[in-house]
């Protein structure tokens, strides 16, 4: 059921202009699993994701898909294997859900080839999987945030790729819609064997939904593995510069991170200092400078 496309980064160095964002990073995406990348703002998560669909050419190293460098694969061939939903895609004014989802068929169509039944079937399956079929004739710009995100995911699904990359698919969504989107992606992974790679902001949702968690700090891989191995107080400190307690999530059994700030964290008044951080030497000092 699961096709095992091997996606990996080898000594990958990425940057914009003079700025190096990711340096000499190695990582392997386990096939058929849900991989979540977490890290502080501007640590290079999105950059990493962009380079995997070659939106960004590496300074050094390479992204390898099934033994071939993605930057040397034909564009459409890559787009039939690897899909990406960017953080802020643009919906053309007035476009209907059906049309937008249909755009996902682009890599399967030649310059002059006509739309065919396979395209219809793929679009229908995508609408169905995201429960957006009843919205098909609505204009995308009049949908709610949660509906819109489901439609964009439907577009990526219509692309029928075995690997799906998503850059913060839950941003701007309320709690119930976040869960809805993450459940939907898990459905895809479980029923079709789609390999999902996504960047998430929320560490606890990441820990809950990831089969494989990758923590990135300052453009380098800090830790990777099952959430229960990766997510601990030391990782949170190193990656986010934040004191915390990590307990077992009573709902999922996965690790749950409870941040410790200067207020409402047990001993009021002084910095930090919940039990988990006693004698941490003033967490304020551990906070790394925010880069932007």
């Amino acid at each position: 059921m699961t096709t095992s496309h091997q996606l990996a980064a080898e000594r990958l160095t990425l940057g914009y202009g003079d700025r190096v964002v990711v340096s000499s990073l190695d990582l392997v995406v386990p096939p058929g699993a849900i991989t979540v990348i977490v890290g502080a703002n501007a640590c290079g998560k999105s950059t990493l994701l962009r380079s995997m669909t070659r939106l960004l050419t590496p300074r050094a190293g390479q992204v390898v898909l099934d033994g071939r460098a993605v930057h040397r694969l034909p564009a459409k061939e890559l787009a039939r294997t690897l899909g990406l939903l960017p953080q802020s895609p643009v919906a053309p004014e007035g476009i209907t859900v059906l049309d937008l989802v249909g755009r996902g068929r682009h890599p399967h169509q030649g310059v002059f080839s006509r739309w065919n039944e396979r395209d219809d079937a793929a679009v229908a399956a995508a609408l169905d999987a995201t429960r957006t079929a009843e919205l098909a004739d609505r204009a995308v710009d009049e949908l709610s945030g949660g509906q819109r995100q489901r439609v964009w995911i439907a577009m990526a699904l219509a692309q029928q790729t075995d690997l799906l990359l998503l850059d913060e698919p839950t941003t701007f969504l309320d709690a119930s819609h976040q869960i809805e989107v993450l459940d939907l992606l898990t459905d895809l992974n479980r029923t079709r064997g789609t390999t999902v790679v996504m960047v998430l902001h929320d560490l606890n949702l990441a820990a809950r939904y990831a089969d494989h968690l990758i923590a990135v700090a300052d453009g380098a891989l800090h830790a990777a593995g099952h959430p229960s191995e990766v997510l601990n107080e030391e990782t949170v400190r190193a990656v986010f510069g934040l004191e915390s307690r990590v307990i077992e999530d009573p709902v999922s059994g996965r690790p749950l991170m409870l941040p410790i700030g200067r207020y409402h964290s047990g001993g009021e008044r002084c910095h930090g200092g919940g039990e988990g951080a006693v004698g941490a030497g003033g967490p304020g000092g551990a906070v790394t400078a925010d880069k932007r």
Binding site: T96, G110, R118, D120, V123, A124, A125, D128, A133
Partner: peptide, 25 residues
């Protein structure tokens, strides 16, 4: 472009949805 029959046709999508998509298109 020459279709190879490897696409999971329907893929669980009810025929109604497929028909609606085809009609809309």
């Amino acid at each position: 472009p020459p279709p190879v029959n490897d696409v999971p046709v329907g893929n669980g999508a009810p025929a109604g949805t497929v028909r609606a998509v085809a009609v809309g298109r």
